[in-house]
Structures are given as C-alpha cells and as structure tokens.
C-alpha cells in the first residue's frame, strides 16, 4: 500500500502532559483518512506535527518516505507548498479582501499573470459557492462563510495533501452537505490525499475511506467505516455510538469528585 504519510512511534509532550504515546498511523495516497476522537486528544496537534510546526519528542513522521525532521528548510517549504490546510478558525488574512485571500498563495508561489489568477480565484470561490462575495472583507463574513473562503484558499494551488481540522463544526446543514461533497470531489477528481480531523461521526463516516480513532495518546481503533461500526472493542463502540458512559473518560483527569468537595472543605 502506498502511503503519503507514515507516522511511526510518535511521542509528544505538551509541558508535562503526554499527548501522544508511541502512536503509529498511515495516511494512504489518494484516500480520505479521518482521525476521530474525543476533544482534547491532540487531533489538531497531530496536524501541526505533520505540517512541521511542532517537533515530535520521539518517533518519526515520513512524508513520501522522507523524515520531516531531517528535511532542510527549502525541502520543508516545498512540502508545505503542496499542502492545503484548513484550520478550525478560518484564519483569513484580515487586511485582504476575500478575493485577495484566495489569490495570496498564487501570488507568493507562482508567477501567473493577473488574468489567470483572476480566473483561478473565481473558479475556486465558485466551488465553495462564494463567487459573489469576492469583494467583501473577512470581517463581513459569517463564521461558516469564512471557513469556506479558507477552504478555497487552501485548494488554491491544487495541493497533493489536504488537511482539514474540524471542517463541519459551525456549518449550517446546506453548507455541510456542500462541504462533504466538495471534500469527496477533490479527492475523487483531483486525486488529492485528504486527512480529516473531526468528531462529527455522521459526516466523517460518510466520506472517509479509513478511520483512526485515537484516545489517551493511542490509536484505539482503525479500519474502514463498516469495520468500525461493527465495533470490536468497547471503547470504539462507545465512541461510534456516542455513549456517555464507557471506557473513554468524559472528564479531564482529576481526583474523585467527593474527595475534591470534602477535601478542600
């Protein structure tokens, strides 16, 4: 199997807290891979490690078989040029219009003519249904619209790898359907490898080829959506069905409640 990204024995600490504990996972080329898990399990952190913004404390991240940490500055920049990233916050450049936001990657990384950039930007904006909003400022957009502009910006240079951080949260049902279609389309038509981080089980299951469920720094379940729904382990079952009680803790690690209440008195 051809993997674009392979993560081997990743260990990562944030301060004293261990986020990943000797974790391994693969992102196969041309497929939609989803990473799911309860909030606070470091899903966003994982994307930042793959993007080279955070360095793992141990283990390796291989991109096309090359160790990310061993890459030279230029190699890393070249890799990032082929990377589309959609943050949870849309992170639009507030001093640029919608049009200029989408044009930004083209302007800094290519020498395309102004007419060509205009056509490309309008195509990308059309894909997310916001061609009419090109002259608005980011501050005039709703949260959902801003996210879609950010998506148009992320796919501006037709990246090899798209990473989505919680793309579905805060979207109305229509936009949500459109997003799901779009992610699927990008993957199918352009052969873009997608890595998706989410806890919206419904949508994720509907588009992912392969799902990893992580909790407490480890992969607790992996496989196709069907395999996971069949649910082998109790933890996976709890997560896939959204049960509150189960092996996955709902609380941030703490002492016993009674002890806390009585102890401090």
């Amino acid at each position: 199997m051809d993997n674009l990204i392979e993560i081997k024995n990743l260990t990562f600490f944030r301060g004293e807290r261990m986020i990943f504990d000797n974790m391994s996972l693969d992102v196969p080329r041309g497929k939609v891979t989803a990473i799911m898990g309860p909030s606070g399990t470091g899903k966003t952190t994982l994307l930042r490690i793959i993007g080279g913004q955070l360095k793992p404390d141990d283990g390796v991240v291989l991109v096309n078989g090359k160790d990310l940490c061993q890459m030279s500055h230029d190699e890393l920049q070249a890799f990032r040029r082929n990377l589309g990233m959609l943050f949870q916050s849309s992170a639009l450049f507030t001093d640029l219009s919608v049009f200029e936001n989408v044009a930004f990657p083209m302007r800094v990384h290519t020498n395309l003519s102004e007419e060509l950039i205009r056509d490309l930007v309008l195509m990308k904006l059309n894909a997310v249904g916001l061609r009419g909003a090109r002259d608005l400022a980011p501050s005039e957009l709703s949260g959902g619209m801003a996210r879609r502009v950010a998506l148009a910006r992320a796919i501006a240079l037709d990246p090899d790898l798209m990473m989505y951080d919680e793309p579905f949260t805060g979207q109305d049902p229509i936009a949500m359907g459109m997003l799901v279609d779009l992610i699927r389309q990008l993957n199918g038509a352009l052969g873009i490898t997608s890595l998706l981080v989410s806890h919206d089980i419904h949508e994720t299951v509907s588009i992912a080829d392969q799902i990893y469920i992580i909790a407490e720094g480890k992969v607790i379940g992996a496989g196709s959506p069907e395999e996971l729904r069949a649910g082998s382990t109790p933890m996976v079952k709890q997560f896939m069905h959204g049960d509150r009680d189960g092996p996955v803790p709902f609380h941030y690690p703490a002492d016993d409640l009674a002890f806390d209440l009585l102890g401090e008195g």
């Binding site: 993007g51 913004q53 890393l76 920049q77 070249a78 890799f79 990032r80 040029r81 990377l83 990233m85 943050f87 916050s89 992170a91 639009l92 450049f93 507030t94 930004f104 990657p105 800094v108 990384h109 950010a150």
Partner: peptide
Amino acid sequence: GLMKTTEQLSIMEMMGVDPLRR
C-alpha cells in the same frame, strides 16, 4: 497580536510563507 491570535501567522507558515519575512 491579532494576526497571531487568529492563527493568520500560523496558516501562513503552513503555506510555506515565512511570516517573519512577510
């Protein structure tokens, strides 16, 4: 500060553009 808070600097870095230079 606002650019940093709203992750504009971070996304720029992810795009292969050095926010310090830019």
